[in-house]
């Protein structure tokens, strides 16, 4: 188990390093001169030279890379060209919002998706299954930005149940915070809950016809135990994989959702920085996104080994 995690952690670190290299090279491969972008269109050659020197752009690439790594390790992601404030502090305010949004969306999607998936599998061929399938089809096919607009129109503006936009920090008022973020989280989670429902349903249908479920029934276990401990636990192996992969989708979904609900999160930061050609911020945003993916994958693997004991042994052998 320990060795398995260690090898996975090492793989994750390598991937992370590759990402850093790619981001570094990618940003330098972009057309245009960052010094000119910083100094403005009509700057004198001497001003450009000064800026190049200040940012180390006149040094050889390996030296620049070394500097970049050094800054990264110090947690220094640079300064926004647009606002002049440090990228670190911008991330520090934006990331918690997105984290809360995606975590909540994930939670809601898991509850709804896995719950209805199990119901649909257990009540196969009954109205419950048709209802669940219909829900999944809608959840998958309706784009959530449109769903978000509908929700704002009817639930926020129309019925006045939720605020249409804005955000309150969880630290200043947890209830108000929830009130602001619950609607975006539900909207963001619909697509995922539909995906999870379908995966859970098919995995559960397989599991329910498996021999070990027959054994569990023959043992005289309560039906609920047969479903949860035997069928669902095995089905979750598949569901967790899909959920992990979909978490990436959730991050890109958050970009759109935050825009619609004007949440000051990571997605909004991304869009703003792209529109304003704010290279240091873009660089940081790409790096953070990639890191998030890697961390999520690592966590999914970790979860695997919790759910499926066979994974632990496989890690021991390799």
């Amino acid at each position: 188990m320990g060795r398995y995690l260690l090898s996975r952690a090492w793989q994750s670190l390598l991937t992370l390093f590759a990402v850093v290299v790619l981001v570094f090279l990618g940003i330098r491969a972009l057309p245009g001169d960052p010094a000119r972008a910083l100094a403005g269109e009509d700057s004198s050659p001497s001003a450009l030279k000064a800026i190049r020197h200040e940012y180390g752009l006149d040094r050889p690439l390996p030296v620049q890379f070394w500097k970049y790594i050094e800054q990264l390790l110090h947690g220094n992601l640079g300064v926004s060209i647009n606002t002049g404030s440090s990228v670190d502090s911008m991330l520090a305010t934006a990331l918690p919002v997105t984290f809360e949004l995606t975590a909540l969306a994930m939670l809601i999607a898991s509850l709804i998706g896995i719950g209805t998936g199990v119901l649909a599998a257990v009540r196969r061929g009954k109205p419950v299954e048709w209802f669940a399938n219909g829900f999944a089809l809608i959840g998958l096919s309706v784009p959530h930005f449109w769903l978000g607009l509908l929700a704002i129109l009817y639930l926020s503006v129309g019925a006045g149940l939720f605020p249409a936009s804005g955000f309150v920090s969880i630290w200043s008022s947890p209830l108000d915070n929830l009130h602001h973020i619950i609607l975006p989280a539900v909207i963001l989670g619909t697509g995922l809950s539909a995906v999870l429902m379908r995966q859970t349903r098919s995995a559960m249908v397989d599991a329910l016809s498996a021999d070990y479920v027959r054994t569990a029934k023959a043992k005289g276990l309560p039906w609920r135990t047969v479903i949860t401990r035997h069928a669902l636990r095995n089905s979750l192996i598949v569901v967790v994989t899909v959920a992990g992969l979909q978490l990436g989708e959730l991050i890109s979904g958050a970009v759109v959702t935050e825009q619609i609900f004007s949440l000051p999160g990571f997605g909004k930061l991304t869009i703003d920085s792209v529109f304003r050609r704010d290279y240091p911020v873009i660089q940081a945003v790409v790096l953070v996104t990639a890191t998030a993916y890697i961390v999520i994958n690592f966590l999914v693997d970790l979860l695997y080994s919790v759910i499926d004991p066979r994974v632990r042994v496989a890690g021991k052998d390799s």
Binding site: D211, R214, N234, I237, P309
Partner: peptide, 13 residues
């Protein structure tokens, strides 16, 4: 049952 390979739940001790 016949199949000891599949009649036990793989994720429980």
């Amino acid at each position: 049952f016949q199949e000891p390979m599949t009649s036990l739940n793989p994720v429980l001790t």
